[in-house]
Each structure stands twice: as C-alpha cells, then as structure tokens.
Amino acid sequence: MKEEDHIEEKNPIETLLRMDRIPHIWCPGCGIGIVVTSFAEALRKSEIDLDKVAVVSGIGCTGRVAGYIKLDSFHTTHGRAVPFATGLKLANPELKVIVFSGDGDIAGIGGNHFIHAARRNMDIMVICVNNFNYAMTGGQVAATTPTGANASTAPYGNFEYPFSLPYLAEASGATYVARWTALHLRRVTKSIQEALTKRGFSFIEVITPCVTLYARRNRLGDGLNLLKYYYEKSEIQHGADTRTLDISYQGKLIVGKFVDKEKPTFLDCMNEHLAKKLGDKYQPYGVNNG
C-alpha cells in the first residue's frame, strides 16, 4: 500500500473536537456522543463565527462534553452551568453561549437557575441530555426518572412525579423549546441550528440512552433496544401544548418543536428600560450584539 492510502480522510466535525483528548470516557453504546455529533454538525453547518461560541457544562457524564468540544469551553460545578453562562454572556454579549449538560445538572440541582434564566430570557441556549437518571454517580433517581422506573436509590421503583422539561421551560419563559431523542439525529442538528440563529433563552431536550445504568437496571437491553423504544414510541407533534408532554415509564415520547417565538432578551430589556428612565446619563451596554 502506498503511504497516502493510510491517511484517513478527516471527519469534518473533528476540527470541532479536542482530538488530543480522545478516547473519551463514555461507555460503549452511550448516547451522549451522538448528541455531541449532532451539535458539532449544527455548528459546522451554521454561519456563525465559531470563535464567538462558548460551551459551558456542569458535572456529570454529559458535563464532560465541554472538555471535548474545541471551542472556548468551561467545565464548571454541578448545577451551576446556567448561572456561569449568564455571567459569561453578560460580560461579553457578542458571545453565543451554549450550556450542554445533563438532566440532573440542569433540572435537579440547577433547577432554580434554569427557571430564572428562562424567566429573564437570558440569551443563552441550553442543550439537556435527559437519560432519566444521575448517570455519573451510578444511576440514582433523578427529577426526570419516570414513575415506576428503577434507580439505584429507588430500588423498589420511583414513586415520585417527574418533571416535564419542555413544560417547565415554556412556563418559565423560554422562547424556543424542542424535544428530540438520540434517534432523531438530523432533527437535533436542525433544532440546534435554528436555536443558534435565535436570540433569547432556548431549550433543547434530547432523550438519550444510558446503557450502563438506566437500561441495565431496568432490564431494557442495550443501546439499540432503547433506540428501538424511541423509534416505536416517539411521535412528532410540532407545536404540541407543552402541558401534554409527560413521559411515563416506557410510554409515548412526544417530540418536536413546541415553542418558537420572539421576546426581548434580558439585555434588550435592560437597555431599553434604563435608557428611558435615565436618558443621556445611561451608557447603553453591549447593544450591537446581544
């Protein structure tokens, strides 16, 4: 074989990954990598200046995403990715700030930050990998675990009511809300692309297989079996009323884009209001961008 035959063609998304950190830590069959691929694909396809994109993660299996994305990236503390992103965005409004983290991180320990960032219409995007459990720590019950599912700290099954994340996001004020599963690769990419062009708080939930913990503990088979479940039970309903999106154990998964509207962002409101109140005394802040 000639030498050049050895040179594999570089996957175009590799330029967006920290290849010097591969192999990654995720289990074989884990769905997080699929979502990262969709994300990188969306960034590649989008027209935005990638030097102005920053990724912030909290802690968890999904929280490791920031460490693999070759952009300005921040691996923060458990639950605090959203307020960290808020500070980053406000300090440098020309940035497009994306939070990429797990369901426990965003809706459990970080739930309060999540609803307040949505309420303020902070101009950030949140991509939430929902694997129905706290994976990194060994598969404990989460705020998103369907009632009846087993988890390491719900050994007799979960008897609590889970959050419906799109409903929570819309009720809190998000201007873009979508839910997909890891099966809907192209849809996830498209949603992220759309959200990249929007200003305001956007939220994308991606239901993702955790094969090692959630699937195994619930005897649901491997990653493929979970994707099969997504295939059989997901139903695209764009514009569905977010009050109808509850997820029951192995039940129907309503996916789609539910909210897509325009509303002034935190900085829009701040600038407009203070300029009105203070007139010439006011020094407009970061007005050209965000």
Binding site: D72, T77, R80, P83, F84, T86, G87, A91, N112, H113
Partner: peptide, 19 residues
C-alpha cells in the same frame, strides 16, 4: 441573581468573559 450560588457562578463566568 436567584441566590448566592448563582451570584458567584455568574461572577466566575463574567471574569472569563473579560470583566
């Protein structure tokens, strides 16, 4: 912010944003 956990997190983010 919504609490002091958020306040300090936002501060750290803002420093890395240049402030």
């Amino acid at each position: 912010m919504e609490d002091e956990l958020a306040s300090i997190s936002a501060l750290i983010g803002a420093v890395w944003g240049g402030k």
